[in-house]
Design a protein around this nucleic acid. Structure first.
Lengths: 340, 340
DNA sequence: TTGAAAGCGCTAACAC
DNA sequence: GTGTTAGCGCTTTCAA
């Protein structure tokens, strides 16, 4: 392994000059630039990361901006992953600051405002609210730091990294899963949209789009009928038994399938397939007792962990990172849940 | 962040003494040991990995011992993952030496013999052959280096790391998958064992065990009948049409489901569910045209990648690594194949 | 049993 | 434009 010192000797220049060439700091004649680059190439010089980081003696601060997790079970999971990553890389100069927001756009914007004033070297953010995110991400860009989006994707942000599900494809898959085992001549599907105040997050809409697309232009599904109902999350009373009359299968495009499963179980409704998302405790409960057939997991814990790993790679190892990291679409049934 | 120098000042000793305490090198009075440890604790001293590695100036060699991949499509995949890891950590002093073996126990032992004489700091090995592996792993242990098993597990080796599938549970899952959509009163299942010369690898046997266990003691499956056939891999002629008479579903406990799928398709046999393992090209082909219903993926690429990551963590970052890393049991259907 | 000091390879400030 | 050099924090050798 050749070092800067050796390169300097071979090129008849000083280590300072070699360093300037390597980092494009300018102030070197073209002649010397060429000389040094030739040697670098010839001997396949690779920077010694340890020496570099020691000399830089820089600590890296990562800001994490995601929903508060004390109310939302789902959002505990990315945190767990992030903490695992933090633990792993703490001796390499990585530290983490958390910026939580409540699950509404106002709080999101406030937190982003704080973030604008803060100092950090990398950002992991769950950009739940599309337009607001678009605005702030463009602001953050000016800080010229690596930005990692988890959970929700925002395109059109140059040079950002996305870690999460391909929401559209996740919808397609749910279409497949829901149609497994449906052998009736006529099939009635129910899509249940269980919303918070605003839940037009792009993930949600794309899943529904993907779901429908699965059935498009396939003759074997020409007798499928699709019904949609909207339910407010906190008014379970609005769920009625008649919604389920004649229904063969139910698709819940967010993590709240357990609300439907609960109703189905209590009212002893038989023979409906339920497909939903995310491994919340209650979802798992109904998966285990057979009310929910399939859950699609987007591995939020791993998303968080990968977020930290990617920033470690970028900041410490100085490597390029992928622009897009889609999580595998994990199909979860009772028998493969919890295998680590 | 406190440094060794500061600790030395605070304890009124030299940096050498602090270093001796930190690394338990002995040659220090109990009094000084206590003094230094107290300060370390008080200020939560963490070693600076970069400085440490720079001073050690050590390069780490990883030996990789897996089947040759020019004939075996499957074994290309761990290599891809390993190469990805190698690329990622090459500037941190990690390099990789490959030791390939042919898929038979003699070649495996020969290669292990070479390995015994070689010098390296960490080992990634696919211990396909159980007894042979048991012997050699115990020999490798004497080198006192971290050992990572991928693909196949060997228990009873103290302090080794396993990265791979929980084969038993993978069998259980295939039981579940095969019974999806089977609504007949009487069900005939066929287990097709397609063997190489010796294919009593533990993975294979455990999958079959897990498969049967899924149906045990469940009344809803009391009308299931199980049939087994053995086929030599290279004598496809032995597959006969009558094997499939009255059969509702077929379980192939290794990666060769495509052989059955091919026969089923050519002979226009309808209405059998096929469940198999691994995303070989041919398996995917039959998954895509609907002959194979489910494939269970054990993510061999990721196994390789994780192997390198784990050794990086252990050797470079000096962190403890998990003893067991089970891959999630990925259920693959057409709609979620290839999402990265 | 201890301390002093050189050196790992790179960075960056400073002097020329 | 270029060279010199101190210093990042740790390891290890050597002398005491």
């Amino acid at each position: 392994m050749i070092t800067i010192k050796k390169i300097a000797q071979l090129a008849n220049v000083s280590t300072g000059t070699v360093d300037r060439v390597i980092h494009n700091r300018g102030q070197v004649t073209q002649e010397n630039i060429d000389k040094v680059n030739k040697i670098i190439e010839k001997y396949d010089y690779k920077i010694n990361i340890h020496a570099s980081n020691l000399a830089l003696n820089k600590k890296f601060k990562i800001a994490v901006c995601i929903p508060k997790n004390n109310q939302l079970e789902y959002w505990k999971l990315p945190i767990i992953g992030i903490q695992r990553g933090a633990e792993e890389y703490k001796n390499s100069g990585i530290s983490i600051d958390y910026f939580y927001y409540d699950y509404n756009s106002l709080s999101f914007m406030k937190t982003c405002g704080k973030l604008l004033k803060a100092e950090f070297d990398g950002l992991i953010i769950a950009p739940i609210f599309h337009n607001e995110s678009l605005f702030f991400l463009n602001e953050f860009k000016k800080k010229n730091i690596p930005i990692i989006l988890i959970d929700s994707n925002i395109e059109n942000i140059p040079n950002r990294t996305y870690i999460g599900q391909d929401a559209y494809q996740a919808g397609v898959l749910s279409g497949k899963l829901i149609s497994i085992g449906l052998t009736n001549k006529k099939v009635n599907l129910l899509i249940v949209k269980i919303n918070k105040e605003i839940d037009d997050t792009s993930i949600y809409l794309q899943r529904i789009k993907g779901f429908y697309s699965y059935f498009e232009n396939k003759i074997e599904y020409k007798n499928y009928k699709f019904n949609e109902v909207n339910i407010e999350q906190f008014s379970k009373g609005k769920i009625t038994k008649q919604m389920f009359e004649g229904i063969d299968a139910i698709f819940v495009p967010n993590s709240r399938a357990y609300i439907i499963a609960e109703f189905v179980m209590k009212n002893n409704i038989k023979g409906v397939n339920i497909v939903g998302y995310d491994l919340l405790e209650k979802n798992i409960e109904y998966l285990n007792n057979g009310v929910i057939n399939f859950l699609i997991n987007q591995n939020p814990e791993h998303q968080g962990y990968l977020g930290v790993c990617n920033l470690y790679k970028k900041l410490v190892l100085k490597e390029e990172i992928n622009i897009e990291n889609y999580m595998p679409l994990e199909i979860i049934v009772k028998e493969n849940y919890g295998i680590k």
